[in-house]
Amino acid sequence: MHSGKFISIKTLCKIHKVEESFVYTLHEYDILELRQEREETWLHEDTLPLLEKMVRLNRDLNINPEGLQAVHVLLQRVHGLQQELLTVKRKLDALDMYF
């Protein structure tokens, strides 16, 4: 379970001028994790940058939810590979010195 702050979807959509249905669609496509409590839906503050990224991609590039889901999965893979590459590079550097 998450700790930290949660933002009400209603408030968030009002501030960011985003349709609530868009946020729920992202949730249906497993892009965003939402939480139901006290008859409201909430988004964890750590997930906010992801939502903003999806809004930008939707608005700037006209990418539909199906496309956003594909982009999300691929970006996660890119991120994982970049981290792996960094770790491998560091290990190689260490081995260069050690041997």
Binding site: R56, L57, D60, L61, N62, L75
Partner: peptide, 15 residues
């Protein structure tokens, strides 16, 4: 513009 923006958008090209 749309074509190039899709290719180079910073959200699609992290780091």
């Amino acid at each position: 513009y749309r074509k190039l923006a899709r290719k180079y958008h910073p959200d699609l090209n992290p780091n």
